[in-house]
Design a protein around this nucleic acid. Structure first.
Lengths: 251, 251
DNA sequence: CGCTTTTTTGAGAACATTCAAGGCATGTGG
DNA sequence: CCACATGCCTTGAATGTTCTCAAAAAAGCG
């Protein structure tokens, strides 16, 4: 937003102007704390298909996604792949902090990240209780999401998996305020959906067709879905829409 | 270990004498910190099949398992069940702290737990950086384990799932020093294994028979397994036994 | 010991996969 | 601007792994 020729140094720091701050770990910090975090942060950009890090790499950095979509995944020795998560703007990347990353991260779209050197971030966490508490909260949320995904992978049918997935994407788009009613952007290939849902490309494709034929969704384009019958999708997904819990869960 | 008639009050606190302390979050605390933790802890016992808490209950407490085996699971509306973890002595229970539990916990064997009221524990975490850091580390480990389980549920065959499961149990028995070479206790029913591995009881049973016939295991009893061919089991499980990583991972 | 529960085994069915081909976009070069 | 190549998605047919239904065997328990 800063025009050419304008002095980028203002009293508003980049972090204070960050559009995803309220969604991320940074959201709980005071202005002075934010300054200290900003002092150790670096910006990185990645092109589609570019690796951000690989399983086994020394875990030197943690990241905050500020733009684009990232996938994280694990591989079996013979190449079978399980995507364990998609990360959108505001999501934290690299939480499972051992000395090496236990999974790989790759850019799906053009991606921009805030990069935090791990040692420096750990020092800051020791000094800023807010930050550490927020990291624990984030880890806790991810754990709950991981358990939901285990339920999906272990016990749901193909149609139930796809319905669950679409509703999750929709909920996250709403949270980012990146939503056009029930019309959903799918910046994810059929192959990546398959590897996330524990299915094959063909089964994912057939399931989309099936849901379309049954009137639960329409497909305005390969990467666009309209959630035409939200109630039936929720029934299919096995989501318990407890009035009160609906707003709180995972938001 | 305290004989009958002996005065149980000594200078050694119960926590200091706790056999699982080194395995659990308590292990990192100083004696004075341990005293403060002990001040808020209550002991609870549960019989087999007894519920510890249910999905949706107000999350009033967190727990440390000091004895026995606990299962945690999620249900679909029609009753399908996915067990997301088994907890052994030293394991922490209740980490995903929202206002309500996002899963149910049930005793498999007779279970003893240390119970921490959530509000009091959160106060203590604020005052004891060691404790909070350890909680984050624990959450981080659980997240890594959850991702491994997603890989299992999404991409592994029945035989690969069972092999992975047996090796995980073995590794955890070793860690608790509760191991007799390659002979493994299975305090878990076929039904619970099935619900953990995303299979049916029948498939689990057939897979045990198959692994036995192929010489990878022997079955001295229904709830005892001898891991006869560890190398082949590891190959089957798709576990990368990097010399250096082998000892560090998840321990 | 006789009962119940759990585990094993069998046969057939189902859902998802594999293998294969065709369609439909997108992009490049003629 | 069109022809063509490329990659992704869809659809079809056959196969296979796991599931379902059913019953027998084994184990646990009073």
């Amino acid at each position: 937003m800063v025009g050419p020729g304008k002095d980028p140094r203002t009293t508003i720091s980049p972090c204070e102007a960050c559009s995803v701050r309220e969604l991320s770990v940074c959201g709980v910090l005071s202005p002075s704390e934010l300054d200290r975090l900003e002092a150790i942060v670096g910006k990185n950009n990645f092109a589609p298909l570019q690796m951000i890090f690989s399983e086994g790499d020394a875990a030197a950095s943690l990241f905050n996604v500020t733009g684009g979509v990232v996938k994280i995944y694990k591989l079996l020795p013979d190449g079978r792949r399980q995507i364990t998560g998609f990360l959108f703007p505001g999501d934290f990347l690299g939480l499972a902090l051992h000395d090496t990353y236990s999974y790989s991260a790759e850019a799906i779209t053009a991606v921009s990240l805030c990069r935090f050197p791990r040692t420096k971030l750990e020092t800051l966490m020791g000094e800023m209780p807010h930050l550490e508490k927020q990291m624990l909260r984030t880890a806790s949320n991810e754990l709950a999401a991981a358990q939901d995904q285990m339920l999906l992978l272990g016990r749901k049918s193909a149609a139930e998996r796809v319905a669950t997935f679409l509703l999750m994407l929709h909920r996250r788009a709403l949270r980012r305020d990146d939503s056009h009613g029930a019309l959903l952007d799918l910046p994810i290939s059929r192959a990546d959906m398959a590897d996330y849902l524990g299915l094959t490309i063909e089964t994912v494709s057939r399931t989309f067709t099936k849901l379309k034929n049954e009137g639960l969704i329409t497909l305005p384009g390969t990467h666009k879905v309209d959630l035409a019958d939200m109630d039936q999708l929720e029934d299919l997904a096995g989501i318990v829409v407890d009035e009160d819990l609906a707003n709180a869960a995972y938001l």
